[in-house]
Design a binder for these strands. Structure first.
Ligand code: MN
Ligand code: MN
Ligand code: ZN
Ligand code: ZN
Lengths: 146, 146
DNA sequence: CATTAAATGCAACTTGATTGCAAATATTTT
DNA sequence: AAAATATTTGCAATCAAGTTGCATTTAATG
């Protein structure tokens, strides 16, 4: 499953989000748009460095601002590390398969859970060890406290 | 939702898993059984230390062996930290709610996803920001490579 | 071009988790 | 019960992802 968002425009995306057009942000966004799957910060650094060296901290801050503006999605893994993918119209929310061994994340078809299980039962070659359903938010107490 | 596994016996659980009965393992397991929700390593340490001080590394290794023997479940959070809960018969797999603010994890009813959404739509006071469906396992290549 | 606000780079730091190895403890054998 | 063996533990060092403070640079604005 490719992201199929080659059409997303770097400049337009930044402008729509009201983010200034720095070379670093352009480079990171370009890499994200061209990616064929979720990328780690390390991988993003490796790819941006082909054209210009960017500081690790800067990448973290850029990803953080992209996330706040819903340009990208953060996909936390079970190894204390997150991967990132575009959150554009061409790439709706979908489940992911994470290989514990090579620490690679694969996008799964955007099906409902029942359909997804059928999909796995089919010609899928993944060996599933566990499935986490993780609901994130803010609890009652913390809501009242602010 | 309490774990309701007060009945699980420390000695019996260890014996069934073929794990030797060290004071440290007994202490950790006792704390896990008495817990009323998922615990972090820090919280486990705090509770075991009330009776005997255990090294942090030892707790990690104990939790790791408990997990391998399906005595407990690991619940990774989106903050690079895992929480742990009993995996006994009285505590079947279920979704969890994680508060980003106080970093507390709450157990949710073990319903199917569609029912769970109804549950949230009801008198629930959680503010949901995002839901991660996380499928873990080993991919095709990694399976063949071993 | 000058001004100002925002973004970046660097170094140091934080935190959860892991590793190597010697010492202690549990289990097995005699 | 004592000795032999295997397992487990504790400590210190280390790792890796991610964060923070602050000086410097860059982008937007007029
Ligand atoms: Mn994806
Ligand atoms: Mn639970
Ligand atoms: Zn793999
Ligand atoms: Zn909270």
């Amino acid at each position: 499953m490719t992201l199929e968002n080659e059409h997303c425009n770097v400049v337009a995306t930044l402008r729509k989000a009201g983010l200034s057009r720095t070379t670093q942000r352009m480079a990171v966004l370009k890499v994200m748009i061209q990616a064929d799957g979720p990328l780690s910060v390390g991988e993003i650094l490796k790819r941006t460095d082909l054209e210009q060296r960017i500081n690790k901290v800067t990448v973290y801050r850029i990803l953080s601002s992209f996330k706040e503006n819903s340009i990208i999605r953060e996909l936390p893994t079970d190894h204390g590390m997150s991967l990132y993918e575009m959150a554009c119209l061409h790439n709706p929310v979908h489940p992911h398969f994470y290989c514990k061994t090579c620490r690679t994340m694969s996008c799964l078809p955007p099906l409902r859970l029942s359909q997804a299980l059928d999909w796995f039962a089919g010609p899928s070659t993944f060996r599933i060890d566990d499935v986490h359903v993780h609901v994130n938010g803010v609890c009652r107490q913390c809501q009242e406290r602010s």
